[in-house]
């Protein structure tokens, strides 16, 4: 069987790739397009490390076939910064020491960005429940939650 040709937009760039029908979007991002910023922690949708935005909706890229990306718009952690200007979430993750090993960080950043796009002023509880699908084993979540709340506050200030 020949490979499938898929045309899509990833991190603002129009991209084409060839894939097998059974390959997930995560497989293609990492192993075909070599965009390894998006991580695999479980492959079964339980850890959130592979979080990406699909047409502005937060999804696990391990739970989506690459073939389903045809004509869709995908955003990953690699597109969050504008050049060398970090997104406020990225900046606050650094300032609050919200990462230790850092392997869950890309997923958390993408998920948190999706939250703040919908709810610019979330409560601690809302942040915790929104991010419940992102596992972190290093931090106990404390500093991650603080970083998201701090970034939200800064972004609200910037918008005002």
């Amino acid at each position: 069987m020949s490979k499938r040709h898929v045309t899509t937009t990833i991190d603002g760039e129009s991209r084409e790739f060839l894939c097998e029908d059974e390959q997930t979007l995560l497989d293609v991002l990492r192993d075909v397009l070599m965009k390894t910023g998006t991580k695999e922690g479980c492959g079964t949708g339980d850890c959130g490390a592979c979080s990406v935005m699909l047409d502005s909706r937060l999804v696990c890229s391990c739970l989506m076939l690459a073939a389903e990306a045809e004509g869709r718009v995908i955003e990953t952690v690699e597109g969050m910064a504008e050049g060398d200007r970090l997104h406020p979430l990225q900046q606050h993750f650094l300032e609050e020491a919200a990462l230790q090993c850092g392997v869950c960080t890309p997923g958390f950043l993408v998920a948190a960005q999706a939250l703040l796009a919908r709810n610019p002023d979330p409560s601690e509880r809302e942040v915790r429940f929104w991010l419940a699908g992102n596992l972190c084993r290093c931090t106990g979540y404390d500093k991650i939650i603080r970083a998201v709340l701090a970034a939200a506050a800064e972004m609200r200030g910037a918008d005002a």
Binding site: G45, G48, S51, L54, R57, L58, V59, C60, L63, M64, A111, A114, L115, W130, L131, A132, G133, N134
Partner: peptide, 9 residues
Amino acid sequence: IGSTQIQGR
């Protein structure tokens, strides 16, 4: 049903 990510699908 599942996480925020799962809810997306």
